[in-house]
């Protein structure tokens, strides 16, 4: 009997750190899509308004921001109608924060499934990114209609050629959220301390991002803090492209891109390392 060594699967305690088994994800693409479908269908089952909730949330937040930051605190919006200013920021920010918070408990929330069946764990956070992308697209429609309305009625909005950057910005935002999410998720399987930080950390991060204020009103002295936040330049470019306010700086965007790539890569490695043994510590 000639025992050939063409094993399909070899499982060892430690694989090479770069052996991420990404090919497997392709084999499970159907599962990815089914998870996305599940997320959608299940969230709005037994609700009356169903997917309309997608719209209600950003509308109400925008109105609240307009009242509090615009009318009460009188924070500048660089001459843009407040509701349009806030909704543009909120739409993009929600995409980022939802992706981050929902991927950050991948391991703990799915422990019961992960404990019984093997499939590439990365499928779960990826499905979160996809379903948030769909949700974002729907909310983007809302933003676009508000934007078109003001575009027709007012003439201080100047969309420009950088609109071509928008798909890239969306992709970048998704990956950035995912990268943070999987790192946090990997780090919270054994020590749950970080979990407490995520909820309010994301909220704090929003105030370190030009969502409720334009970058232009930040004093020069503190600007570097805001710019060190990789989300800033993405939001700024987004607003610049649609509204023509703020400024576009290719270096700042390049920084965000590098930040995302490096963070995502670290995330992949850490996530893969943790996925193999987290069942013992979760």
């Amino acid at each position: 009997m000639n025992q050939t060594d063409d094993w399909d699967l070899v499982v060892k305690p430690l694989n090479k750190w770069y052996d991420l088994r990404l090919k497997e994800i392709l084999r499970y693409k159907d599962l990815l899509l089914l998870f996305v479908r599940r997320d959608f269908v299940s969230v709005y089952k037994q609700t009356i308004l169903g997917p309309i909730w997608f719209f209600i949330q950003p509308i109400i937040t925008s109105i609240t921001f307009t009242v509090i930051f615009g009318n009460l605190a009188r924070i500048s919006t660089d001459g843009i109608p407040p509701i349009l200013f806030y909704i543009s920021g909120i739409t993009l920010w929600n995409y980022f924060s939802d992706t981050l918070t929902k991927t950050s408990d991948t391991f703990t929330a799915n422990a019961n499934i992960f404990g019984k069946v093997y499939f590439p764990r990365m499928i779960v956070p990826l499905s979160v990114v996809l379903s948030n992308l769909i949700k974002f697209s729907v909310q983007l429609l809302l933003f676009l209609s508000v934007w078109v309305y003001f575009l027709i009625t007012k003439d201080d909005i100047h969309p420009n050629i950088y609109l071509l950057f928008v798909p890239f910005l969306i992709l970048l935002m998704g990956f950035l959220g995912l990268a943070f999410g999987i790192i946090i998720s990997s780090m919270t399987t054994k020590y749950r301390d970080l979990k407490f930080l995520v909820g309010f950390g994301v909220q704090l991060l929003m105030y370190a991002t030009p969502i409720v204020y334009p970058l232009s009103i930040v004093p020069e002295k503190y600007k570097w803090i805001i710019l060190a936040n990789p989300v800033t330049s993405i939001v700024e470019t987004f607003k610049f492209a649609f509204l023509g306010i703020g400024d576009f700086n290719i270096w700042h965007l390049g920084y965000s891109l590098m930040f995302t790539i490096i963070l995502f890569f670290i995330g992949l490695v850490v996530f893969h390392k943790v996925e193999k043994s987290f069942m013992d510590t979760v």
């Binding site: 094993w7 699967l9 070899v10 499982v11 305690p13 019984k116 069946v117 193999k276 043994s277």
Partner: peptide
Amino acid sequence: SQVTTPTTGEFKAKGRI
């Protein structure tokens, strides 16, 4: 089932598990 990894040692398989 690859739900968890061995501390030491390895296993090899042919085909889908």
